[in-house]
Design a protein around this nucleic acid. Structure first.
Lengths: 201, 201
DNA sequence: CATAAGTGTCTAACTAGTAGACACCTTATA
DNA sequence: TATAAGGTGTCTACTAGTTAGACACTTATG
């Protein structure tokens, strides 16, 4: 039989993954500040000692959860852009759909934006990540030659997209992924710039 | 510090719980028959050996999942009725609401009824469990003195309730728990019998 | 103010999970 | 039809990950 080993680094992650999942549920249930380390390990059925072999404290766990999810969001779009590399031109819907489907797949996490006392840094980090993706992984081309400050333009469209996402999440994902992305595309068509995607498939 | 030991039996369950959860997801993804043991352990990040220390095969896991959830449903209503014990009379909504909230809490599992190639025994076992709850944990009293075959009456109302539940689940839990239970109560009011609840709080 | 509950750290012990190999069985496919 | 590829179930020896428990502190709550 073919080798069936799972990378050692990933093995170690199993427990961390469970602790993260427990944190998500408990934040929804009682708010971030009310969650204790004991709550977390009880929920996930681990010993308190185990928690401390993986994390320093609750905040480190929360931080790990936040960055891993936002990092995942970035990566979901495609390989991060490496300067001086081949540039792909793709249809608008492909990379954006990746964002949408990543959020939907991890809706359990992203629903945390519906809560007030939630993961520290989420309310700021989430839109910033969207912006970062726009900055690093998209380029825009003029259709006619109207000049625009590209930094501002990206910020403007990124936060616009974020607004749509937020509404989608808060509504409990009422629309299907397909319908949602379709509507988002419609709105981008109101711009004088067209989309391009940087990266490698 | 107070003793913080978790019952040893429960500790052992952690892994089993994760394997069950993996099975649920994979059944939704590819259908019960296509799911392999390897799929399960990969999804849950365990070694294949680990699976076999807990279960004989996929079917045993599926069986364990099924009975544990249906057992949980029964218990959620209250303590099972012990013959020759104190009989509680409760408002209709209390015990029924427990069923509803248990299903909602475990909607991830109960959504499996939406699938064709799903957990063996689920499509038959679920309604049977509802009936069992009606048989063992509810009694009905005549309002006027119209006589009715009580066995048939319970079967009739249990499957009626099951129909409502199924629709609620299939619709993706569109109505809130509160709204759903309210509507269910309205329908029971069309009966000439009134509800009672057997058991201990 | 006192009791209860949580925190963070450190041990020593152990068990649950791991890698790997085996024989066997079923499906594709070349 | 032969052969590779992928899945099954079982067993063994090893160790990494998890555990219980104790300790000294620091908040909360009635």
């Amino acid at each position: 039989m073919k080798s069936e080993q799972i990378p050692a680094s990933q093995r170690q992650n199993r427990t961390k993954e469970h602790l993260k999942q427990a944190l998500i549920e408990l934040v929804k249930e009682k708010g971030y500040h009310s969650v204790t380390v004991k709550n977390i390990v009880d929920y996930a059925s681990y010993n308190r000692s185990t928690f401390y072999t993986h994390y320093l404290d609750k905040n480190e766990l929360a931080g790990d959860l936040l960055v891993s999810m936002l990092r995942g969001l970035e990566v979901s779009v495609g390989r991060p852009y490496v300067p001086g590399h081949k540039v792909y031109t793709a249809k608008l819907d492909a990379p954006s759909f990746n964002i949408v489907s990543y959020i939907y797949k991890n809706r359990n996490f992203f629903e945390l934006i519906n809560y007030d006392d939630t993961l520290p840094g989420l309310h700021t980090g989430f839109p910033q990540t969207i912006l970062k993706i726009y900055e690093e992984q998209f380029i825009f081309e003029t259709i006619n030659n109207t000049p625009v400050n590209m930094d501002y333009f990206k910020r403007y469209t990124a936060y616009g997209f974020y607004g749509l996402l937020q509404n989608w999440i808060q509504s409990g994902f009422r629309e299907t992924q397909e319908k949602f992305i379709e509507e988002a595309i419609d709105l981008t068509k109101t711009h004088i710039y067209s989309f391009k995607y940087i990266g490698q498939n």
